[in-house]
């Protein structure tokens, strides 16, 4: 049967085809749904936020010239 776009979403036929045929997209879709992977992703995000976050600790004001 020939695929057609969803009436409300132009181009949806192409996206659906990619998701079905691209093994990487399928793999990511399945793995991200797994709680262990989600926990690891959250961990990476938390650590990245701490490492890359802006300094907000400059509370000690001193004068040097």
């Amino acid at each position: 049967m020939e695929e057609t776009d969803h009436p409300a979403v132009p181009g949806s036929r192409d996206v659906a085809a990619v998701l079905r045929t691209d093994p990487l997209a399928a793999l990511l879709g399945a793995r991200l749904a797994h709680p262990v992977v989600l926990g690891c992703v959250l961990f990476a995000l938390v650590v990245a936020a701490i490492v890359l976050g802006p300094s907000s600790e400059s509370r000690f004001i001193y004068t040097d010239f």
Binding site: H34, P35, V36, G39, C40, L42, V46
Partner: peptide
């Protein structure tokens, strides 16, 4: 699964 993910975190 969300609680499990948080436990992993």
């Amino acid at each position: 699964p969300l609680a499990f993910a948080l436990a992993v975190l």
